[in-house]
């Protein structure tokens, strides 16, 4: 495996009367965590399943390291995927599920125990999957995906069902894998989680690409509406001073102002020059949530 780049090219899927994915193209680079974002019904799951040969595209191609998933000689060594909470037989134990996977792909059975430890599922390994919580099933799914020690990891809404501790654990795991040079593609509609996790984002809505790029670039491209929030007992005096510096100032409750059009440093300098005491000063960057809602606002989530 020399290259774990994912290339999606003009991918399209029509279901009866509905275009779930519409001429979608994007690339996912190795060594980075890429967030695949979109509201529910945007076509994320369908896209990931087409990438993995589970759903047949109406048109277009999707390749991993230059090959279709179907053409990979040993797909489990190249790609690990977590698509739904584990997809394991309910009557089988977690360990036996993983062992069955090992037997299918020719891995030693001990690999099952290794990945169980990796995801912290060791104590529950010999319990039947039907007794697992959703979070445990997600961990089992991640364990199965890691069996072949793949170069590429694809996860569909992995945060579903995980508690805050589990989410932090997963974030560290995925970021660690990306740091090691692996490709990590994670779909989510939980934007705040993506902001903390992803290096790049691919934003889709209504089956179409809305924006792709590094998280910071996508944020900046949205106009970079950085704002500064201050608290001061002398709001009128500061407002006047800032107006002279070319800033837009709006009152935000008693003793509090929100300023845009200048940097936080400029606000501090202006206040000092005007002899106005500041009790609080903070720079606020627009969060992904706002950008995302702006970007996907016009597209109906349900078609």
């Amino acid at each position: 495996m020399d290259d774990g780049r994912i290339v999606v090219s003009a991918l399209t899927k029509h279901y009866r009367g509905v275009t779930a994915v519409d001429d979608l193209s994007f690339t996912v680079e190795p060594g980075r965590v890429t967030g695949f974002l979109g509201p529910n019904g945007a076509g994320k799951t369908t896209t990931l399943r087409m990438l993995l040969n589970l759903v047949m595209p109406t048109a277009g191609t999707a390749t991993i390291g230059g090959r279709r998933y179907l053409d990979l000689p040993e797909p489990d060594r190249v790609v690990g995927a977590v698509l739904e909470a584990s997809s394991a037989h309910k009557g089988r134990t977690g360990r036996n599920h993983l062992r069955a996977c090992c037997l299918t792909t020719g891995l030693p059975l001990t690999r099952a125990d290794e990945v169980l430890d990796l995801v912290g599922l060791g104590p529950a390994a010999d319990r039947k999957v039907k007794g697992y919580s959703l979070g445990m099933k997600q961990r089992l799914g991640i364990a199965a995906a890691m069996l072949g020690d793949p170069q590429v990891l694809i996860l569909d809404e992995p945060a579903n069902g995980l508690d805050p501790e589990g989410i932090r654990w997963m974030r560290q795991l995925l970021q660690g894998l990306a740091t090691n040079g692996r490709t990590v593609l994670v779909s989510s509609h939980l934007l705040s989680e993506m902001q903390a996790l992803a290096d790049d984002v691919v934003i889709v809505a209504a089956g179409r690409l809305v924006r792709q790029g590094a998280v910071a670039d996508v944020l900046a491209s949205m106009g970079g509406d950085h704002r500064v929030r201050v608290s001061t007992p002398e709001t009128e005096k500061l407002t006047a001073a800032l107006a002279g510096a070319g800033a837009t100032v709006t009152a935000d409750g008693p003793g509090s102002l929100v300023i845009s059009g200048v940097t936080a440093a400029a606000v501090g300098d202006t206040a000092l020059a005007a002899g106005v005491p500041l009790h609080h000063l903070s720079a606020e960057s627009p969060d992904l949530e706002d950008v995302f809602l702006d970007l996907t606002h016009a597209k109906a989530a349900i078609r």
Binding site: L52, N53, P75, S86, S87, H89
Partner: peptide, 18 residues
């Protein structure tokens, strides 16, 4: 049919796409 009934088809066809 249990692959669909037990919803294990995803795992099965991921491991053996042919």
């Amino acid at each position: 049919t249990s692959e669909f009934h037990q919803q294990t088809a995803t795992t099965t066809f991921l491991l053996t796409p042919h």
